[in-house]
Amino acid sequence: MASRKLKSASPVATKQAESPREMQREDRRIVAEKIADVYDDHAYIAPWTDDLVARDLGVPCAWVAEVRDFMFGPANENPVLAENARQFSAWSADYEKFRADLTAHTEQGKQLRNTSLDLQRRADDIRAQQNRIVREGKL
């Protein structure tokens, strides 16, 4: 048997994760101006959220949350998004119930089909036996 020499794995250099850059004064100004454009007295205007503002500006969501919290107040839910989330939650519960019912009815349908096939087989056997009895009786 030929023996193979295994190469030792070379150590892989691991990169240190770069820490996110810190928010500068200019960053704060830009974030604050954007929030001012999309935030009314108590909440974001639909469809805006901290996350959407952050994606729009290309900055971390934490920056937006920090500036919004300091300058505009708590992140009150956008009422349109809150209603949409409520409707989705209700729909999701109804859909899950529908899926469970459908699964149960599908299983029940399979059982009923199997019962029907069994009854048909038994009826065929009885009919064949009746035909034999009739034939034998005419001899």
Rank of each mutant, 00 (worst) to 15 (best):
41 D>V: 03
72 F>S: 02
122 R>T: 11
121 R>T: 15
74 P>S: 11
57 L>Q: 08
129 Q>N: 13
21 R>Y: 04
89 S>Y: 02
107 E>L: 08
115 T>K: 11
88 F>S: 14
44 Y>G: 06
131 N>L: 15
28 R>D: 05
118 D>M: 02
56 D>P: 03
53 V>N: 02
84 N>Q: 12
108 Q>T: 13
1 M>K: 12
41 D>E: 07
27 D>R: 04
78 N>L: 02
42 H>T: 09
35 I>L: 01
39 Y>A: 05
111 Q>W: 00
33 E>Y: 01
15 K>F: 06
39 Y>F: 14
25 R>G: 08
71 M>P: 01
19 S>L: 08
61 C>K: 09
121 R>E: 13
82 A>V: 02
115 T>I: 13
27 D>C: 02
69 D>L: 08
73 G>R: 04
5 K>V: 14
21 R>I: 11
76 N>S: 11
31 V>I: 13
80 V>S: 07
134 V>S: 15
59 V>R: 11
38 V>R: 02
67 V>H: 02
53 V>W: 00
64 V>E: 01
47 P>C: 05
2 A>M: 09
125 D>M: 07
80 V>P: 01
69 D>Y: 00
90 A>H: 10
19 S>C: 13
41 D>H: 09
116 S>F: 13
67 V>F: 01
81 L>D: 03
25 R>W: 13
125 D>A: 12
52 L>F: 05
98 F>T: 13
61 C>P: 01
129 Q>R: 15
76 N>I: 00
139 L>K: 12
135 R>G: 15
49 T>C: 08
34 K>F: 03
20 P>D: 04
56 D>T: 15
11 P>M: 08
109 G>P: 03
113 R>I: 08
117 L>R: 08
129 Q>H: 15
32 A>G: 04
31 V>P: 07
74 P>R: 15
97 K>M: 01
115 T>Q: 15
57 L>P: 07
110 K>D: 06
36 A>E: 10
35 I>P: 05
38 V>G: 02
10 S>G: 03
101 D>Y: 04
5 K>S: 03
85 A>V: 05
96 E>K: 14
105 H>T: 14
102 L>I: 06
36 A>I: 03
33 E>Q: 12
128 A>T: 11
